[in-house]
Design a protein around this nucleic acid. Structure first.
Lengths: 235, 235
DNA sequence: CGGCAGACTAACCGATCGGTCGGTCAGATG
DNA sequence: CATCTGACCGACCGATCGGTTAGTCTGCCG
């Protein structure tokens, strides 16, 4: 299946591939060692020859899955030849193409993030998640400092919105055409730019006539302060 | 065997509660009937007296979890005494308080959405998901028609961004304070308004300043349905 | 009282779980 | 040649899985 990338022998490689596919598709508890062995074309015992336990195999699969994910955002943060707006677009495009281009890995990581606290794999995924998070907030803060982005938006919030949106688009990638206005199969850049434009400009119609908050022009970094401000829908 | 939709007896109620907690925390395959029985304080066989199988119990738990979720957005869509901006804020606030206020249900539904295609419960969750989706896009389209929201944003994209952000905030609710600038424990309205403001105004600094994009200032609703319209920043 | 229905359980079933054990086999090394 | 090593496997283990059976207990209707 995959080219032998690392030290694992061809047998171990087949086991890792089969385990990746199984864990991504069904989750740790839902795929058995027997399933993986059958899929990999090896015996059950051979799996325990290469990996000391099912959990160790899972850890190895996760380690492979999230290897080198945060590097792109960190490199982007360090670049000096790009504007912040362009960086933001490049970031969102990368996130989309990375998620859509490595479906198994994305599925694995999403599954792991879901099991907050209770899963051992969290210790593996979370550092990568955190590194990426810090890099993205850094890019947004850069933009605030050089005047590209509004001072009163919260970088953490924007970062979470981007990450969350990529994940939800990914999870619904096979039924996007059931959402009015969205094509089912489009290059991931299409969705990326859709999201990029929305994140950048917001949804409000006119830049000046808007009733609510966010009059960024004031230039004073209000930071994250009061929660409620404007008119109160009673709902 | 009690009828599926009637009010369950005290025993069945305890089983449903225990199953809800177990399925939400660990997932279908990771919690056993024995676990649920112990948690509910009944015998294993009694579970099969009230529910014909583990899968049927799971279905019942899911049915309870997503009961009446789409109603709020649909009611909001129908209201005529609120502006679209206020509707958007009310919607996001509701989504946050609903997710944070019913942790088990939220966890269950997120877990089910993750298993796209392969899980029987999808047929139960997806209609609710779809109804809510249609109502939210309807609210945004209302705003576009009455001039509150920009014509060139895509309602489906905005809807997915809102839903995705709520979920990611929820999943990381216990470590929000590890994200710089975000308090760990805050009323859900705090996060809701943070997201609301970002969605509404976007991240760009000044409506007419340096960034090439988003010069929506022309003030005339372009009235075109096309999603791609304005100038195109290239990465 | 007897009859009956539903809530409930201990004990059990075959299947499958993660994991182990003893051993085969190919190839490198001497 | 003999020896060793690591990849590999069939058979097996105890535990646990979802689910069944046979039966107990309780309350209600006649």
């Amino acid at each position: 299946m995959s080219p032998p990338t690392d030290l694992p022998s061809s047998g171990a490689r087949a086991i890792l591939d089969a385990a990746t596919e199984g864990f991504a598709r069904a989750g740790f508890d839902s795929v058995s060692i027997a399933d993986i062995a059958a899929q990999a074309g090896v015996s059950k015992a051979n799996i325990f020859h290469h990996f000391k336990s099912k959990e160790a195999l899972h850890q190895e699969v996760l380690r492979e899955a999230c290897k080198g994910h945060a590097e792109f955002a960190e490199a982007l943060l360090a670049r000096t030849d790009m504007g912040s707006v362009d960086k933001l677009q490049a970031l969102i495009r990368f996130d989309f193409s990375d998620a859509f281009g490595h479906e198994l890995n994305t599925h694995l990581v999403v599954r792991e993030v879901l099991n907050t606290g209770c899963c051992a794999g969290r210790d593996l995924v979370e550092p990568v998640f955190m590194r990426n998070f810090m890099a993205v907030t850094g890019i947004i803060r850069q933009g605030q400092q050089n005047g590209s982005f509004a001072d009163d938006i919260d970088p953490s919030t924007v970062t979470m919105m981007i990450g969350a949106t990529v994940i939800l688009f990914f999870q619904n990638r096979h039924m996007l055409d059931r959402f009015p206005g969205l094509p089912g199969s489009a290059p991931s850049d299409f969705y990326a730019d859709l999201v990029f434009r929305t994140i950048l400009g917001g949804v409000v119609a006119s830049p000046s006539a808007k009733p609510p908050v966010v009059t960024a022009a004031s230039g004073k970094p209000r930071a994250a302060g009061s929660t409620a401000s404007k008119s109160r829908p009673k709902a």
